[in-house]
Computed example of a mutant assay.
Amino acid sequence: MPNLSLLKNCLPGAVWKRVVVVLLICAPFKGFSQYWQAGGFLGISNYSGDLVQQRVDLKYTRYSIGAHVKRDVNRYITVRAGLTYGRIAGADSTNTDTMLLRRNLSFRSPILEAQLGVEFNFLDLDEKRITPYVFGSVALFSFYPTTKDAQGNTVKLRALSTEGQGLAAYPTRKQYNLRQISIPFGAGVKVLLTDNWVAGFEIGFRKTFTDYLDDVSLTYVDRNTLLRSRGSKAVNFAYRGDEVTGGHVTPGTYPADGTQRGSAKYNDWYVFTGFTLSYRFGGGGGYGPNRWGKQKVSNCPRF
């Protein structure tokens, strides 16, 4: 950056005024020389938590869809912002562990996520036409675990305080927030289809700071206390082992206060995997392998 005060002293007044005008006019064009992208995402969503024995149970794969805006800062760095909607689910009925089968819990939840992050591209996309990339973001997401009763009706689980959240008898168990922060990160590959269209595929893991995506985390609370505070419906959905039918597992009775219900050792995760398609525009310096090297201020008056 030139020393403007020194430049002012060295130039006649009329020339200096022209320089100032040129700088003011050209500044926007220099910023415009970077690409913008707008596009969409279509894929699947998965969950990892207390209601699956494996890290991820593909039997409970659900859909996800989203939209994004990106800006290429240079050939390797891309800033991204996006909004994604997906659904996650899990159930004890497909587990093999007898204790989990007897617990007989299930859940489903929508996930709505807004994220802001950065991609690092390993190659120059305009030169190679393809590049792998990694990304990291910060996101705000919302969720709401529900389940189905024996008649197929939807039941909202948070309001039932199934693990004593918000009850005076369990002061350390605070009600969980339905809006949380997550840390999305992952990897993908993008392909330059034409000068304007970019296709990609990515997998993104979401580290959360809650263990209640599935409404399961700690231990059972006293049945009578839960009954008095939240009613019989809360008791019925805190433990559903009495609904078990068929197979080698016999129906159970509500466990004693303090019996393990979930595991708070690890927080829950969710994952979005899918395809992206983006339209890019701007760029100023033209398309092609040498685009970045040829970027320069244009459309500026001369004097």
Rank of each mutant, 00 (worst) to 15 (best):
M1S: 09
L7K: 03
L7G: 03
L11F: 03
V20Y: 00
V20H: 01
V21P: 00
V21I: 01
V21C: 02
V22T: 14
Y35S: 01
G39H: 07
G43V: 00
D57P: 00
K59N: 15
T61G: 09
T61I: 03
I65T: 05
G66W: 05
K70A: 10
T78C: 08
G82P: 01
R87I: 00
G90S: 13
D92A: 04
S93Q: 12
N95D: 14
D97K: 08
T98V: 11
T98W: 11
R102F: 04
N104G: 03
L105G: 11
S106Q: 13
R108A: 12
S109Y: 04
P110H: 14
I111H: 00
G117W: 06
D124F: 10
E127M: 12
R129G: 04
I130Y: 15
T131S: 15
F135H: 13
S137A: 11
S142R: 11
S142M: 07
Y144C: 11
K148H: 06
G152P: 13
G166E: 10
G166D: 09
A168R: 12
A168Q: 14
R173E: 14
Q175Y: 01
Y176D: 14
L178S: 05
R179A: 09
R179Q: 07
Q180G: 02
I181L: 15
P184G: 07
P184A: 07
F185I: 07
G186D: 12
G188V: 13
V191S: 01
L193P: 10
N196Y: 03
V198T: 11
G204Q: 07
L213H: 02
Y220S: 03
R228T: 14
G231S: 05
V235G: 08
V235C: 06
Y239F: 15
Y239S: 13
G241S: 07
G241A: 06
E243F: 04
T245Q: 15
T245D: 14
G246W: 09
P255A: 06
Y266R: 06
Y266W: 14
N267R: 12
D268H: 09
F275N: 03
L277A: 15
S278K: 10
G283I: 07
N290Q: 13
G293Q: 08
G293P: 10
K296D: 08
V297L: 10
S298F: 02
N299S: 11
C300R: 00
P301H: 00
